[in-house]
Design a protein around this nucleic acid. Structure first.
Lengths: 150, 150
DNA sequence: ATCATACATTTGTACCTACAATTATTGAAA
DNA sequence: TTTCAATAATTGTAGGTACAAATGTATGAT
């Protein structure tokens, strides 16, 4: 469906405007798709994102700033996201011994198990989304988005 | 810049995954670009969106559900967004006389003046963003995003 | 050694989002 | 006509985002 139908616009939008709205709208839409799956696991997209980042460290502890740098939404308040995950015992945090300004954050064993369970369902959903485009189109879309951001 | 550098991923991501992350990331990025401009006017992207929708009605009052349908972020809590705009006297609201369940929302004269001022700056910023792609690429990007959502 | 500065994180506040529950109103069926 | 379901908006609560200010720690210059 065209973007102007989604937002029920009555005036004719310029191609440029349509494209920008489309990028915003599709980003929201994709976020909603993933959030819907995550809802069953009582976890938000950003919390899931933190868990994935920590798993990617393969046992090396991460600072808050390491996590922040890797977040998809750069303005997340990582302190509070991590706190929520600590409450769920999915991650652990302690002061960095060599530099007490920093913290060392790790995914726990139960965090890893949980993440693997969630990941399976998320990846199914993602596969269902990407199947609408072939490899060449995915590559094009990737390239165009990169170019848009400069 | 490639998306894997933005999120500083160390493992090699599949093309599919990169594309999905890219859609989310670029949506956030674009939102941040526009929000940065709006900040000078003390208005959020969603409040700006509501004002644009109301202007598009050309003097016809809008219900809350009319606005909601036209929002880029479909889950905005429109009641509260409108309340904020009423406090700033940029929009007005009254009970719909023919159906007291509904409300009639209008942009005020000062809302229109304000919107026009903001719009000029926003459109400059938008033009600066879209200039990285030519017409054909913009058309492609539009088509690919539409196809991704089915 | 002291001090100013930079760094890493936390906290505060306002706004926004997600979603469920509630209130008020309407319209149609029993 | 009463009642019940549907509709439109509002409210409540928890979580997330944006941004500034505060806290605690490290480090280089003097």
């Amino acid at each position: 469906m065209k973007i102007e139908n989604h937002i029920k616009s009555n005036k004719t939008l310029s191609l440029h405007k349509k494209m920008l709205i489309n990028v915003l709208y599709t980003g929201n839409w994709l976020n909603d798709c993933i959030s819907e799956v995550l809802k069953d696991f009582d976890i938000s997209a950003q919390q899931f994102n933190v868990l994935r980042i920590l798993k990617g460290r393969n046992g090396n502890p991460a600072n808050l700033s390491d996590i922040q740098e890797r977040m998809i939404a750069k303005n997340s308040n990582t302190t509070r996201l991590v706190d929520k995950l600590i409450n769920k015992e999915l991650v652990s945090k302690k002061k960095c011994p060599s530099n007490k300004r920093k913290v060392e954050i790790l995914i726990t064993a139960s965090g890893l198990t949980f993440l693997d369970q969630v990941n399976e369902v998320v990846e199914n959903r993602e596969a269902n989304i990407t199947k609408h485009l072939n490899e060449e189109e995915i590559e094009q879309l990737n390239a165009l988005l990169n170019k848009l951001r400069n």
